[in-house]
Computed example of a mutant assay.
Amino acid sequence: MKKIFSFIFLVQLLLIASACSDQNIVPKEKAGNVVDTYGIKTFTVTIDTKEQKEALHVSFTEKKDRSEAEYSNKKDEISLHGEKALKKIMAAFEKLEPDPEADETELITKTAEAFDFKDYKMIRLEVTFKGYDPKEIMFSK
């Protein structure tokens, strides 16, 4: 009886763990829109403010077999995953007007403004534009 209970508990735990890991998945056609429209294959930004560490964490990754998006804004108490996160990220990309040729300072400034975090303490940005080498930038005020 104890073995059966343990087996059932293990199966339930595995089902819960596998269900939670898929929450950030974005349908292939929607992820393709980001690459086609903005030329961005990966994008991760983390912004710390004076009041809060990781006040903003945004992540988008376009991969061949699965793409993911995550948006967490502690200042506005918003946490989104998958398609909802992608919608929020794409709205910021419209303001950002990403340019792979932009210098690092311009990218940082525009990213902070696009996500409505003009007053920040530190910002970490990792972005890969289609056909370009990845950029990793960290800037502190």
Rank of each mutant, 00 (worst) to 15 (best):
D48N: 02
P100L: 02
L10H: 09
V34C: 04
Y120L: 13
L86V: 07
I25K: 09
K3P: 09
S6V: 14
E126Y: 06
E62D: 11
D99K: 08
S72D: 04
L10W: 09
L96W: 00
K110R: 06
K88M: 05
E94L: 08
N33S: 12
I16K: 07
K63V: 08
K87V: 14
K118N: 15
T105S: 13
V34R: 01
M90Y: 05
I137H: 01
G82N: 05
E77D: 09
I40Q: 02
K95V: 10
L13C: 14
I8L: 15
K110W: 01
F117P: 03
D103Y: 05
A85L: 08
Y120G: 09
N24K: 06
F7I: 12
K50G: 11
S59W: 02
E97I: 14
E94Q: 09
K118T: 15
F115T: 00
D99L: 09
A85I: 08
K74I: 01
D48Y: 02
F5M: 14
K53P: 00
K84Q: 13
Y38G: 02
K75V: 05
F43R: 00
G39C: 06
D22R: 11
E54Q: 12
F115L: 02
A69D: 01
E136C: 10
H57D: 03
L14Q: 10
A31K: 04
L125Q: 02
S6G: 11
L56F: 03
Q23N: 10
G32I: 15
L15E: 11
A91V: 07
A92W: 01
A85G: 07
V11D: 09
T42D: 06
L14R: 08
V35F: 09
F139C: 08
D103T: 07
Q12P: 11
P27M: 07
K64S: 12
S140K: 11
K41S: 09
K28M: 14
A69T: 00
F60I: 01
V35M: 13
G39L: 06
E104T: 15
D76H: 03
D133K: 08
I8K: 13
T37E: 04
I4A: 15
D133T: 10
F115I: 01
F43M: 01
A17S: 12
T109F: 10
L10P: 04
K135I: 15
E126L: 07
K88V: 05
S79Q: 08
G32P: 11
D76C: 03
T109V: 14
V58E: 00
K95G: 04
P134V: 08
M138Q: 15
Y120P: 06
T61H: 10
L56M: 06
S59N: 06
E101G: 00
S72T: 07
K130V: 15
E77W: 01
K121F: 11
K141Q: 13
A55W: 00
V35Y: 04
A17M: 13
E136W: 10
Y132S: 13
T44K: 04
F139A: 11
R124H: 05
S140T: 11
A114P: 02
